[in-house]
């Protein structure tokens, strides 16, 4: 049986080599055939798909290959990635990859052990928190102080990842200023953005997690509209937000957004010295067995893409901040980022 399988494999490979001239690839491209990029999200309407499509298109042009982005979700994506070490299957995901593991979500392994970290290429600076326009709380300080003084504050989030990390930071901030009072911040565990908005409309949540992209229009509704909201916090670093186009998003300019950014208008401390910030960054994940040659090839191809400068404009147009790091740099960066968040998550679970 085993020899039969091997023979079959050899025959297939021979066939594919014969067919190889039909498949276009640049001479120095060590990846033969089409490339499939699986992403960690199942939605084709979300930011992961959007960012991945932009980078995939630019990369495909650069290396003259067919690249297809498939929104299979993290679990199926990991399986697909594990099966193909040749570089024909790559994955794009974001900070959820390690946050899911830190929050002990089912199906998430430590990405630093299981995969090679590939280049990062973009940041979505839109993650934030909102309150209803008629809320008694006008800003983050009031929310944290109210919680510290015994008020229960309900925050609608999707548990176990990017949506929860800001909530964890708020809790941590209350703990720092009012030790023992952090349990006055209560998570309302919901799912999609629609459910989070609905939780606010129903009066079940005082604060909701949201994003500049999805909620900006709600912040421009008149105050007497039931659906009207205000931003109180954007978790991105203010320096990251500075990288956006000056027009910002919709009718809200970059400068207006900056007043909600960490470190400028809003202070949510992480420890005695530092403010908490969270940039949602997109990066590649590679199969552990992928050869260094392919890694170097893709590093160089992406570096060239960014050197051309066109992809930055496309990214910025869709409210992404270009952010290129080679795989080695990305590996170091994300490891450090993970470690700092691991600390505050652990502190709260003590």
């Amino acid at each position: 049986m085993k020899t039969l399988m091997t023979t079959a494999k050899v025959a297939l490979l021979a066939g594919s080599v014969a067919a190889a001239p039909a498949i276009a690839f640049a001479a120095d491209n060590p990846i033969r055939g089409n490339i499939r990029i699986v992403i960690g999200s199942k939605s084709t309407g979300g930011d992961t798909y959007q960012a991945s499509s932009i980078i995939a298109e630019a990369l495909a042009d650069k290396i003259d290959a067919n690249i297809k982005v498939d929104a299979v979700g993290f679990s199926a994506g990991y399986q697909a990635l594990a099966r193909v070490p040749s570089g024909n299957t790559l994955m794009i995901f974001h900070d959820q990859a390690y946050l899911g593991h830190l929050y002990k979500q089912k199906g998430y392994e430590d990405p630093f052990k299981q995969w090679q970290i590939g280049p990062s290429f973009a940041t979505n600076p839109g993650n934030g928190y909102l309150v209803p326009k008629n809320s008694p709380y006008k800003n983050m300080d009031e929310i944290l102080n109210a919680a510290g003084n015994g008020q229960t504050i309900r925050v609608a989030i999707q548990p176990g990842g990017v949506s929860e990390i800001g909530y964890t930071a708020m809790k941590n901030a209350v703990r720092l200023a009012y030790p023992g009072q952090e349990d006055n911040l209560v998570a309302l565990n919901t799912g999609s953005q629609s459910d989070k908005n609905q939780a606010m409309f129903d009066g079940l949540a005082d604060v909701i997690n949201g994003s500049v992209q999805a909620n900006e229009q709600y912040t421009r509704l008149p105050a007497d509209d039931q659906k009207a909201m205000n931003f109180v916090w954007l978790t991105a670093k203010s320096s990251t937000l500075q990288g956006a186009n000056p027009e910002g998003m919709g009718q809200t300019s970059r400068d207006e957004l900056l007043q909600y950014a960490s470190g400028l208008g809003v202070k949510v401390p992480m420890d005695a010295e530092n403010d908490f910030t969270f940039d949602k960054e997109f990066f590649f994940l590679y199969n552990k067995r992928m050869s260094p040659e392919v890694v170097a090839f893709l590093d160089k191809a992406l570096a060239d893409v960014f050197a051309d400068g066109k992809v930055q404009e496309t990214l910025k147009k869709s409210f992404f901040i270009p952010n290129f790091r080679t795989s080695a740099e990305a590996q170091k960066h994300f490891q450090a980022k993970r470690d700092s968040y691991a600390k505050i998550i652990e502190n709260l679970h003590k």
Binding site: S43, G45, Q213, A214, Q217, Y218, K227, G250, K317, S318
Partner: peptide, 18 residues
């Protein structure tokens, strides 16, 4: 839900003011 992707790919926001 997939259609929303067409708007975002074109850089257009959908929301209450669309």
């Amino acid at each position: 839900a997939v259609l929303i992707g067409a708007f975002t790919l074109q850089g257009l926001q959908v929301g209450p003011l669309f």
